[in-house]
Amino acid sequence: MVRVTVWNEFRHEREDEAAREQYPDGIHEAIAGFLEERGFDTRTATLDEPEHGLTEEVLDETDVLTWWGHIAHDEVEDEIVDRVQERVLEGMGLLVLHSGHYSKIFKRLMGTSCSLKWREDEERERLWVVEPSHPIAAGIDEYIELPDSEMYGERFDIPAPDTLVFTSWFEGGEVFRSGCCFHRGAGKVFYFRPGHETYPIYRQPVIQQVLANAVEWAAPTGGPDPEFGNREPLEPLD
């Protein structure tokens, strides 16, 4: 069973009435709930817990970490970012959601500013599946229609994804790379754009399916551990 830790700042839902109305128990509980229903072993962690809930023990018992953050990126301790980065490089999967593009861990792994255009105006969004054979797109129609979204627009300052699974079009005319896959060390990273705190994005079954697929894709596969450094030859040398 894949072990998932769902991390969330858990600030908007306590401080903003509109966010609390959508996610009274927090975005993390909503995500953990539907992932658990799909058979994953889930736990949650939040910013204000000791070590942000991401102790070495927790991360050692995590196959895939999901990350939602927005207004408190700078409050995440660098020591914890180092810890998460190390686990990703060792093979832990990481799903970075919505405004988590500005998180310390995503910027660290991308090596860029991860900046973009944005506008909050309840726009229609259409996510086109541009790589239909990818496992994250399994069971998804040709596109996903979201009636109310926050717009994110290009240029998205990230390295070229290893695979682009979704591209978004917005009612105002912008487009955005909304489903991006990366490999970092032995780990896999998926950035997924939808998920604004005041819209019921994570209540939609199709979005839940995407995230469940992404967890399966990002989970470690149990391949061999690479060895580094000086070593003796496998065959005799003349």
Rank of each mutant, 00 (worst) to 15 (best):
W7D: 03
F106D: 01
E57M: 01
T62Q: 05
S99F: 09
L109N: 08
N8A: 07
W217L: 02
F182K: 03
I71S: 12
P194A: 01
R155S: 07
E122L: 00
T55R: 08
G39N: 10
P161I: 00
R231C: 10
P233G: 07
G111A: 12
V215G: 04
A137D: 05
G185R: 13
N8L: 01
D162I: 02
E86K: 15
F156I: 04
G33S: 15
T62Y: 09
P24E: 02
F176I: 02
G195S: 12
H98Q: 01
R231M: 11
V84W: 15
Y191N: 04
I201C: 00
G187L: 13
A32F: 09
G173P: 13
H98I: 00
N213H: 13
R87M: 09
P220C: 12
E232L: 15
M151V: 15
G222P: 08
E122F: 03
K104C: 05
E61Y: 10
L234V: 06
R87A: 06
M110W: 02
F166Y: 13
E90D: 15
R38A: 13
Y202T: 00
E17I: 08
A138T: 14
I158C: 14
M1L: 10
A219D: 07
I144S: 03
R14A: 11
P236N: 07
E150P: 01
G53A: 10
G53C: 08
L109S: 10
F176S: 05
T55K: 10
I80G: 05
I27T: 02
R155W: 08
G185P: 14
E9T: 11
V215N: 04
W68N: 08
H52T: 07
Q85V: 15
V4A: 11
R14G: 06
P200T: 00
H12T: 00
G139S: 09
T44W: 03
E150C: 02
I136W: 05
R119G: 02
G195A: 08
P147R: 10
N213D: 10
P236I: 01
G69A: 12
S99L: 05
R184H: 14
V130W: 12
F190K: 09
P159L: 04
S149T: 11
E120V: 12
P224V: 07
E21K: 13
R83H: 10
E61Q: 15
G111V: 10
E197R: 04
G111L: 07
T221Y: 06
D74M: 01
R20Q: 05
F190G: 06
V88S: 14
G53T: 11
D78F: 04
F106E: 03
F228V: 14
G139H: 11
G69C: 09
R108Q: 08
V76D: 02
L89S: 05
L94K: 14
C180W: 05
D48E: 14
E51W: 09
D78G: 09
T5H: 05
